[in-house]
């Protein structure tokens, strides 16, 4: 297969088609709109432009329950609007893929510029406890691959899986090989119209709402948690580069910003989570080899706090606030912290 030039958002749509996408509902938003522009021209994929992101996520919940692989794509403001129904999809165990092409927030922020400010919102945006699987690639070819992984993980976990991107990667053009040779997971649950099941956001057991059975609620949440952890372990994707020199420092970064981390590969060991959440064991093992943990991200330390919590040790973080990625600024901040 030959290499071809594609934009990040385009790669997402091509991969979604390979993964079996049949239904897309969305609302226009910069920098994610190219996704709906591309999909609307594909045969065999039903595309709806809804009145807002709330309607979009709810429409894909309906379509997914009706048996179709479904996806939506948005950016921060739309992702905020979707949060309540993301919780609903977790409670009803609906497989979905939600693409969030991050831009600078909060609020309208700087719509055309990249950021990584929605990291914590991915796992705590909706109310209550839920345990989403989140992928965050850092190149066009990875967007292609992990879109397919997101669909597979959604089917395996019966949950909404989040594919994070940002205005930088999604608008980047790179050459990729659009490989169609992936193992695709198919739907196991029969579609709506085949029985007398009741899907509800209420705490429930076997299709029956249980609004004040505390023991049942605890069993339900424990089961959902274990299911997410188990699925996440099967999608254990990360990049770890040991340093050629002897170093005591591990530099953690992800998404767009991790592309510049390669520049420092001769000074630091590099770790890049691709499955951002849930955080399972591998980071503990790798981090145990280093005295200092540095985390660089385009926010004020969202992932750093999570890593600190998991490792039970202090980490240093370098906030590169959203908007631009500047090598000199990063160099300055990295070496300032070091000395």
């Amino acid at each position: 297969m030959t290499k071809q030039l594609f934009q990040g958002n385009q790669a997402i749509t091509m991969a979604a088609e390979v993964a079996g996408l049949k239904f897309f509902a969305g609302y226009p938003i910069t920098p994610a709109s190219e996704i709906i522009h591309e999909l609307v021209n594909k045969k065999h994929i039903k595309v709806l432009q809804m009145e807002d992101e709330i309607a979009s996520i709810n429409a894909i919940i309906g379509a997914s329950l009706a048996g179709l692989k479904a996806m939506t794509a948005t950016s921060g403001p739309g992702f905020s609007l979707m949060q309540e129904s993301i919780g609903l999809a977790h409670m009803m165990e609906v497989p979905l893929v939600i693409v969030n092409v991050q831009r600078v927030g909060p609020s309208t922020g700087m719509p055309t510029l990249p950021a990584q400010g929605d990291v914590i919102q991915c796992i705590h945006g909706s109310h209550g406890d839920y345990f989403p699987i989140v992928f965050y690639p850092n190149s066009v070819s990875e967007l292609y691959k992990y879109t397919i992984m997101a669909f597979n993980a959604a089917e395996e976990s019966l949950s909404p899986v989040i594919l994070l991107s940002d205005g930088f990667i999604s608008h980047l053009y790179e050459t990729i090989i659009p490989d169609r040779n992936f193992d695709i997971k198919n739907r196991t649950r029969p579609p709506l119209g085949a029985g007398n099941r009741h899907f509800t956001g209420l705490s429930h057991e076997d299709s029956v709402p249980k609004t004040s059975d505390v023991d049942n609620y605890r069993r339900l949440i424990t089961r959902l948690h274990e299911k997410q952890q188990l699925t996440a372990q099967r999608y254990n994707y990360y990049e770890y580069l040991e340093c050629s020199k002897d170093t005591d420092t591990l530099l953690i970064s992800y998404g767009a910003l991790s592309r510049i981390a390669y520049y420092f590969k001769n000074d630091f060991a590099l770790y890049r989570p691709i499955r951002l959440f849930p955080i399972v064991e591998e980071i503990k093992i790798i981090a145990s080899r280093y005295k200092r943990i540095l985390i660089m991200e385009m926010n004020t330390g969202q992932y750093a706090h999570e890593i600190e919590r998991i490792l039970h040790r202090e980490v240093e973080f370098i906030p590169i606030l959203g908007g631009c990625i500047d090598l000199n600024e990063i160099k300055q901040k990295l070496y300032e912290q070091r000395y």
């Binding site: 309607a55 709810n58 429409a59 309906g62 379509a63 329950l65 009706a66 048996g67 179709l68 479904a70």
Partner: peptide
Amino acid sequence: PVAEGIKYA
């Protein structure tokens, strides 16, 4: 919107 998703699917 959920019902519309089901119907269009």
